[in-house]
Design a protein around this nucleic acid. Structure first.
Length: 670
DNA sequence: ATGTACCTCTTTTTT
DNA sequence: AGAGGTACAT
């Protein structure tokens, strides 16, 4: 291994992790231990050691992580070499594999990718169709079951429950009929493609001789299988992760992948990173004291060379309104009196619904905030409509998208016709689009409906043809089409307020601009490629250089906070039933909730406050609450327990008050 | 075929 | 408290 300047400044374990480039490597990187730095240095090191950049693959979970890694690698090595390294998400890797081989698996090349909401829509229809309207099987539940089954490699026949078995069967059949795949299929089919075709397997193994995986604790069974298929004889696989931050078990992440890594790749070099560069020792000791209570884990103890800090405050609040009010005031004061940037603060909660009350408070005091996560841009109704049009244009068989657009805007094809067409398509095993065109089917319809279908068909056909030209300007095409169908008017009609209409119109506009921009940047990937990109992108940013990232206090779920850090964190709503969530207690996944709190605690750099409420509204009316049972597990030495009453009666801090007046004076004198 | 009013049900986390 | 769905009216 040739030394290079990137290695300077790494601590000994970091350096060891970065320098070991052949054979299996497991890097156990605790929170805030400089994981990304190690990974990027490792990639740079490989390049310095003359490993061709194109043979390196780094897999992440999110587009955001991939982009970040790409950028950081680019600062360490030549721009050119950085561009040759493949850094992508699991899902886009699979799309890449499938676009070349999916025909061998019985799908057409132009397959559509269904997002979660597409899946749920389809499942709901199937449930109604097979079990009747008042079936209480929740589509979300069904989706979870099916997704779990796919990840475990189970077929419908493996289900005892006959309803879910039939729904699973129908779901899979319909997807294939529509030439569509869901997120799990992406993994599943890529795995199947590689398993069934040794030639493909060989060629991908030769292509990527060096493989790295980020956030390895989040991998599921299928992803592990995929890795084992593309890792060649040299076994140059390096995984980085932290079992203590495994918080996606409910989504199929299999923590045994990291706990039993040796079982899959024998004799790995294991490196532990425990020196933390983020938090005060006070916070780290608190975090360590909590996570120690998990039994199945790789022992790690975070430490820092930094000094101790303020003890963590544990505050009880009467209710969620007071909690929000107090915290927002606290942030306001900190900002005014100690000149702290609003960017330094984050409010961490268990579920998105908890953010609303904080938003209200922030708006009242006119404090800037940013909601991280939440509804994605691409989940907005109007954006989904436009996407559905584009999906139908690229893949006529995509029934879910077709049914979405066929009455948006209304064009004289109503419920009756749609239902008849759906039934007909099921009988004939054809797509709804084809059913609509069927002469026999049309004969059963009134003249009016026939004409309406004719016009709709002509529209789609015309744009499909246009889109098949690889050099077409798709953004321009979409704009024209939306004008032709008078989409603006439709949006306006369906909005309660003019403001809302404006907003939606702006979203469509923004989408078109993003599309224009993205098509210009990556010209050759075509409309299909653009749609793939959108389907695989939950993170809203990537299109966002022009738009300011937004600044202010971060409102974020603990799940979404993984990987981030803030000087001051507030973990709110730490009540039994919310922070270990009641459902996780029922399901026996309390350990994962503990890790979630651990992730929350380790986000804080300098100060941390944890709050809980004696009472919280649920479904509208107040409900008494108990403090989180995790409090007993936190080292009391590191905590300062406070009751809200003490805060309310507390005299104003004299120093800060003086400081504040001094500032005001200064401001006024200018 | 479309639009409106009420009624229900829901609330975990999302790559 | 809010969204989404159903039933009914236009």
């Amino acid at each position: 291994m040739i030394q290079h300047k990137g290695l300077i400044g790494l601590n000994p374990p970091q350096r060891e992790a970065a320098e070991t480039i052949s054979g299996p490597v497991l890097i156990l990187a605790g929170a805030g231990t400089g994981k990304t730095r190690v990974v990027t240095t490792r990639i740079a090191g490989m390049i310095y050691n003359d490993i061709p950049a194109r043979e390196i693959l780094a897999v992440t979970f999110t587009n955001k992580a991939a982009t970040e890694m790409r950028e950081r690698v680019a600062t360490m090595i030549s721009q050119e070499a950085a561009g040759e390294v493949t850094i992508c998400t699991f899902h886009s890797l699979c799309v890449r594999i499938l676009r070349t081989c999916i025909e061998r698996l019985g799908y057409k090349k132009n397959f559509s990718i269904y997002t979660q909401s597409d899946q749920l829509g389809l499942l709901k229809k199937i449930i109604v169709r097979t079990a009747g309207k008042d079936e209480k099987l929740d589509p979300k539940m069904a989706n979870m079951e099916i997704s779990g089954a796919k990840n475990r490699g189970e077929v419908p026949g493996d289900f005892d429950d006959s309803l879910i078995r039939i729904v699973y069967e129908n779901y899979q059949r319909d997807l294939k009929q529509m030439n569509a795949v869901d997120f799990d299929d992406l993994m599943l089919l890529a795995v199947r493609g590689l398993e069934e075709n040794p030639d493909l397997r060989k060629s991908w193994q030769r292509h990527f001789r060096y493989i790295m995986v980020d956030e390895f604790q989040d991998t599921n069974h299928l992803q592990m299988t995929l890795l084992r298929l593309i890792v060649g004889k040299e076994r140059n696989i390096c995984v980085v992760g932290d079992d203590d931050q495994s918080i996606y078990g409910w989504r199929g992440a299999d923590i045994t992948n990291i706990l039993d890594f040796e079982r899959f790749f024998k004799g790995p070099k294991i490196v532990k990173l425990e020196e933390n560069y983020r938090s005060t020792n006070t916070i780290l000791r608190l975090a360590n004291s909590l996570i120690r209570h998990n039994i199945d884990r790789r022992e790690k103890t975070l430490w820092s060379s930094k000094e101790d800090g303020e003890p963590t405050k544990l505050i009880s609040m009467p209710d969620a309104e007071t909690e929000a009010e107090w915290i927002v005031n606290e942030i306001h004061d900190e900002h005014r009196m100690h000149d702290r940037s609003y960017n330094d603060f984050a409010i961490l909660f268990r579920m998105n619904a908890q953010s609303r009350i904080f938003e209200e408070q922030f708006r009242e005091l006119e404090i800037p905030y940013k909601l991280i996560g939440g509804q994605s841009f691409y989940e907005r109704r109007e954006v989904k409509d436009v996407l559905a049009y584009l999906n139908v244009i690229t893949n006529n068989d995509d029934d879910v998208s077709l049914l979405r657009i066929i009455a948006s805007p209304p064009r004289g094809i109503g419920g009756g016709t749609i239902e008849a067409a759906t039934t007909f398509s099921i009988e004939r095993q054809s797509s709804v689009y084809d059913a609509l065109q069927d002469i026999e089917f049309q004969a059963s319809l009134p003249k009016r409906a026939q004409n309406a279908i004719g016009r709709f068909h002509e529209l789609i056909q015309r744009y499909s043809e246009f889109a098949s030209n690889p050099n077409a300007d798709y953004a321009e095409m979409t704009t024209t089409m939306l004008k032709e169908i008078n989409y603006d008017e439709y949006v306006k009609k369906n909005c309660k307020t003019p403001d809302e209409a404006d907003m939606r119109r702006k979203n469509v506009h923004e989408f078109l601009e993003g599309m224009h921009f993205s098509m210009k940047k990556k010209k050759k990937r075509g409309l299909r490629g653009f749609l793939d990109g959108v389907a695989l992108m939950q993170d809203r940013e990537e299109r966002g250089d022009e738009k300011e990232q937004g600044h202010g206090v971060s409102l974020i779920t603990m799940h979404a906070s993984k990987g981030l850090e803030f000087p001051c964190c507030f973990i709110v709503g730490a009540e039994e039933g919310t922070l270990p969530h009641s459902r996780s207690v029922e399901e026996g996944t309390r350990d994962e909730e503990r890790r979630l709190l651990y992730v929350g605690i380790t986000r804080a750099q300098e100060c941390l406050t944890i709050t809980w409420c004696h009472s919280r509204r649920k479904y509208g009316d107040p409900l008494p609450c108990m403090p989180s049972s995790f409090f007993k597990e936190l080292d009391p030495e590191e905590l300062e327990k406070v009751d809200y009453k003490e805060l309310a009666d507390a005299p104003v801090d004299e120093d800060s008050a003086l400081d504040y007046f001094a500032r005001m004076k200064e401001m006024l004198s200018q």
